[in-house]
Design a protein around this nucleic acid. Structure first.
Lengths: 110, 110
DNA sequence: GTCTAATACATAATTCTCTTATGTAATTAG
DNA sequence: CTAATTACATAAGAGAATTATGTATTAGAC
């Protein structure tokens, strides 16, 4: 998988947003969803994804639900109520940042 | 000075862009310019700024020109020809990233 | 005339996040 | 039957920024 330098700092927000919109999802599913939404431009790596999910869980922002699919473990993540509030704030913050950045770069966005 | 988490990864591009548009500038001047362009939202810290400028200089992307203003040293930075090419690429890349991000977040930008 | 804020440079220790690499294992498609 | 995909996970290392600190000049307020 591949990912740009620029992803730094935005991963958490992306995770919160997709979980907010799509409800419970498992790790691999999230990578596929982000890949699709980004038209193959953002490929989340496992080394970034799983530690990030674990951290958010430890902080009470996500909760998990482990399911056995045949002999395989699948771990579903979803937002807690704290997480829902945070998701909204983080997305607003990132949108604001993106708008600020477009002013600094003095470009019009598509 | 204060700066958001999200700045990570975008500082270089910002520096290249303002130097591309405003020609030779010194460090403090850059922080003031970015503050103005961002409507006080982006406040570059010296701890981030100077190492970044030094690195770009060491890589041949920026060149410097030291001037004495009274008894004070002022170090002007400007793009080398390599730097001009890089500036364009980096800005294009960041704009593309921002557009991708707005698709992932499914928001419209101002 | 003196003190504070602003101007202007710089570096070091630490923290945080991601990349790269590695490991395990089940399932599906050819 | 074997390669690709699905699906989890962790560890070592790199890179970039934060926070803290340091030095020094100059302008403005009082």
């Amino acid at each position: 998988m591949h990912s740009p330098e620029l992803l730094k700092g935005t991963l958490q927000t992306i995770l919160l947003k997709v979980l907010k919109d799509h409800g419970k999802m498992y790790g691999y599913e999230i990578t596929m969803r982000v890949k699709e939404l980004s038209d193959r431009r953002l490929m989340l790596t496992e080394g970034a994804l799983y530690p990030a999910l674990h951290k958010l869980e430890a902080e009470g922002i996500l909760k998990t639900d482990t399911v056995m699919i045949g002999k395989r473990v699948r771990k579903y993540y979803s937002l807690t109520s704290t997480g829902r509030t945070l998701a909204k704030n983080r997305v607003d913050e990132l949108v604001d940042f993106i708008n600020t950045m477009s002013n600094v770069l003095q470009v019009k966005l598509a």
